[in-house]
Design a binder for these strands. Sequence first.
DNA 1: CGGGATACTTACCAAAATGTAGGCACTTCC
DNA 2: GGAAGTGCCTACATTTTGGTAAGTATCCCG
Lengths: 118, 118
Amino acid sequence: MNAEPGFAPNVLAAECPSRQVLKHLTSQWGVLVLLALQEGTLRFSALRRRVGGVSERMLAQTLQVLEGDGLIRRTAHQVVPPHVDYALTPLGQEAALRVAALTGWIEENLPAFLGTRT
Amino acid sequence: MNAEPGFAPNVLAAECPSRQVLKHLTSQWGVLVLLALQEGTLRFSALRRRVGGVSERMLAQTLQVLEGDGLIRRTAHQVVPPHVDYALTPLGQEAALRVAALTGWIEENLPAFLGTRT
DNA sequence: CGGGATACTTACCAAAATGTAGGCACTTCC
DNA sequence: GGAAGTGCCTACATTTTGGTAAGTATCCCG
């Protein structure tokens, strides 16, 4: 399909916009949120409980960034006790796959890492 | 082999040591260094030129962290104009594969990301 | 012999990331 | 009525990250 960028995206180039996306995706909490949402839609406080150690502030901020990149979809139900849920978009699901591949590999090889440190 | 951890590594848990490894691997410069070294051994200044926008300070720091995690191997040749090269260890190569899968996907889908932002 | 390259380190400083604490508006549960 | 839960936001403080500049020792190039 078309795709005539005039330039090839390259993360090794400082000016490439892909750098920003990379930064968002690989941010401390970005990775974990993607991972948590891979299992299904979650609401704010459930997400907060799922992702160990995240503060409300950082969770809210991270969610906004990821939503801005089109990776997650935020749905607010106008009911009295606020009810909002977050889910991955198709794009987000693809991203989550790659992220999960990385984190899964880390978990599997954790002994190897712990071993290198005496 | 054996593998009776007594606990399952889980990045979603705040106390899990895998969190540290994840942080190193997904750090701004960590990702890019892994990527750059995937193509082959490089020496310090070549690496610096390869990774756009990195400062000497951050490159040196990043290399030390990744070396500490056993992802890269540093080899210093004791010659008068200093000559040091950096290469991926087998563990580092596996990590680089996953990281490259993520960055490659980002580069391919960059138009989709740029599109979400009006 | 001055300038540049090599591979760093250290000191100093600015900027970004992140945590803490409190507020808001309203409901339900006890 | 009072406490807790919901989904945030804002202000303030601290921690981490990252940049700049300079120093080090030695060699090669012109």
